[in-house]
């Protein structure tokens, strides 16, 4: 037994899920269904695609058309589905490693094309499924099982990466800020173009333990305390800016969408040759 929203949008027979105690993946996945419900979208028309990783197991629990693909390639599969049938609402669920390391190329090109796919990144700063190796978003000096002496890499800012690559909607929120998350999901899904919502998430089991971040609850508290809206951040006195992370909307513009542009090509060709 569970809530009406979960009963409606989840495959109850596959629950409870495989995620660890305190992992925020369930929070984010549920928030996605709330956004879909509030938008009143047709459940049969929604396709949720993922790659490989902890968050990529989410589609298996969701009662839509769901596709669990190969590591990093979710956006490429999603691009094929969306172009083949532009009427479908296509959503990608990806982890930070999946979408910005092995799948980084697909991310920047899907954003560049402005294809109408909503990408939701569960950014927990670590490879969880394989046991805690550092990812492209692991902060410098943080520890992972492959960074036992501290990470010397500089992290990606995934939302800004999508923005720079051409996404027409990009925002960042956290797994704690559920109301904002639902709003961002709705805005992202509604945007006709490539949209990205990066959700700062937590992995108490691997990231938390390796970095002495405390319990899941403490890590959620950190999300609550450390993330600040980018507009509010600008108004903070310098001494209060240290240690803060930015959330908010980074991009929200309208540009021609890829599948609509392709449809124009088809119509021009077919219209021009209707006498054949």
């Amino acid at each position: 037994m569970t809530s009406e929203i979960v009963q409606k949008y989840f495959r109850i027979e596959n629950l409870p899920h495989i995620w660890c105690p305190g992992c925020s993946n369930g929070v984010v996945t549920r928030a996605l269904t709330v956004a879909i419900d509030e938008l009143g979208l047709d459940q049969d028309n929604i396709v949720v695609v993922s790659g490989i990783g902890c968050s990529s197991r989410a589609p298996g629990y969701l009662d839509f058309n769901t596709l669990h693909t190969t590591h990093g390639r979710g956006l490429a599969f999603a691009t094929g589905i969306k172009l083949a049938n532009p009427k479908l609402d296509v959503i990608l669920i990806a982890g930070d490693g999946d979408v910005s390391a092995i799948g980084g190329n697909h991310l920047i090109h899907a954003a560049r094309r402005n294809i109408d796919i909503t990408t939701i990144v569960f950014n927990n700063n670590i490879y969880g499924m394989t046991g805690g190796q550092y990812s492209p978003t692991t902060p410098t000096d943080a520890k992972g099982t492959t960074a036992p002496h501290g990470n010397i890499d500089k992290p990606f800012d995934i939302a800004q990466l999508a923005t720079a690559a051409g996404a027409t909607y990009a925002s960042r929120t956290t797994a704690y800020h559920v109301n904002q998350m639902v709003k961002y999901f709705k805005d992202a899904i509604t945007n006709k173009g490539f949209s990205m919502v990066e959700v700062a998430s937590i992995c108490p089991t691997y990231y938390g333990r390796k970095n002495k971040s405390g319990s899941g609850v403490q890590m959620m508290q950190t999300l609550k305390n450390d993330f600040i809206d980018r507009m509010a951040y600008d108004k903070l006195p310098e001494e209060k800016k240290a240690g803060k992370h930015l959330m908010g909307v980074f991009k929200n513009i309208t540009l021609p969408e890829y599948t609509a542009e392709y449809q124009r090509v088809i119509e021009a060709l077919q219209g021009g040759e209707s006498n054949e």
């Binding site: 490429a76 599969f77 094929g80 589905i81 172009l83 697909h106 392709y262």
Partner: peptide, 22 residues
């Protein structure tokens, strides 16, 4: 529909996606 993808892997992945869409 034709699409030139960003790499070979994306090429087959998108083609599989197209097939899944029917």
């Amino acid at each position: 529909k034709f699409i030139q993808m960003e790499d070979e892997i994306a090429g087959i992945a998108a083609a599989i996606g197209g097939s899944i869409a029917g």
